[in-house]
């Protein structure tokens, strides 16, 4: 199976001199195609920094990140924009929907600029929102908003789906529905998915669990079998 990401010696520091902060301290990592991976760690462990660099939102201080053959660490800002545009789907803790666009339009926002998109309605159906197409974010619950965000992320049929604490702002029942949507997408479209969380329970839904601590990978494990999201409780 081909590697989607190959990360070598990835380092990220903020500040300088005595005030220097090491967010990442030489991370090595490979993620294979179609994997559902969960990055587990406490807050401040560096997992979001890694995700941001993988997603082309941030740049590394040292080390290399290859996305297939594309060296992300060598890309300038415009090249990173193109990379995000073509290949990456994002889901964030606070949804980041455009308040002035309906659910369908939020998705269409992406399908308009994607090369091989799903139909927006189809993407929303995948996350169980076929009945809420023409609602504005202000008319949707938090869970529904997050599912729109997932539909928006997968509608371009990205090669990777990066989710940063997608359930962080949601209660357990709603969070489960959101994770189910991510699981469904991973299964149905085969999209490589990385989910960041500090919630250990969520790790059970993954093929692979990467434990993060103090800017380094503290451990990795493969689940023998992925636990269906519907069985997760926290």
């Amino acid at each position: 199976m081909a590697a989607v990401y190959r990360v070598e010696g990835l380092t990220k520091t903020y500040g300088s001199g005595a005030g220097i902060v090491h967010a990442l301290r030489g991370v090595d990592l490979t993620i294979e195609e179609g994997t559902m991976a969960v990055l587990l760690g406490s807050s401040g462990s560096g997992k979001s920094t890694l995700l941001n660099i993988l997603g082309g939102l941030d740049t590394a201080t040292a080390g290399q990140v290859l996305f297939y053959d594309l060296d992300l660490t060598a890309c300038n800002e415009d090249q990173l924009t193109e990379y995000r545009r073509q290949s990456v789907g994002f889901v964030f803790q606070f949804y980041n929907l455009i308040a002035s666009l309906t659910a369908r339009e939020n998705v269409a926002l992406i399908t308009e600029i994607a090369e091989n998109p799903l139909d927006p309605a189809e993407a929303l159906r995948l996350v169980g929102l076929e009945a809420r197409l023409d609602h504005f974010p202000s008319q949707l619950s938090g869970g529904e908003q997050q599912r729109v965000a997932i539909a928006r992320a997968i509608a371009k049929q990205p090669r990777v789906l990066l989710c940063d604490e997608p359930t962080g702002a949601l209660d357990s029942a709603t969070g489960t529905r959101v994770l189910a949507a991510i699981e469904e997408v991973n299964k149905a479209l085969g999209t490589t998915s990385l989910v960041i969380t500090h919630n250990a329970v969520i790790a059970d839904m993954a093929d692979e669990v990467i434990l993060f601590g103090d800017g380094q990978i503290a451990g990795r494990r493969r689940n023998k079998a992925r636990k269906p999201v519907t069985e997760l409780r926290w």
């Binding site: 002035s100 666009l101 309906t102 939020n106 308009e112 609602h135 504005f136 974010p137 202000s138």
Partner: peptide, 27 residues
């Protein structure tokens, strides 16, 4: 709360905008 864009006046804009960014502007 997220700003409410469900008003009738705003809905008019959905018919006017050719694409999503234009709709964002009009709304």
């Amino acid at each position: 709360l997220p700003p409410d864009f469900s008003g009738r006046l705003v809905a008019v804009a959905s018919r006017l905008g050719p694409d999503e960014p234009t709709r964002m502007i009009l709304r």
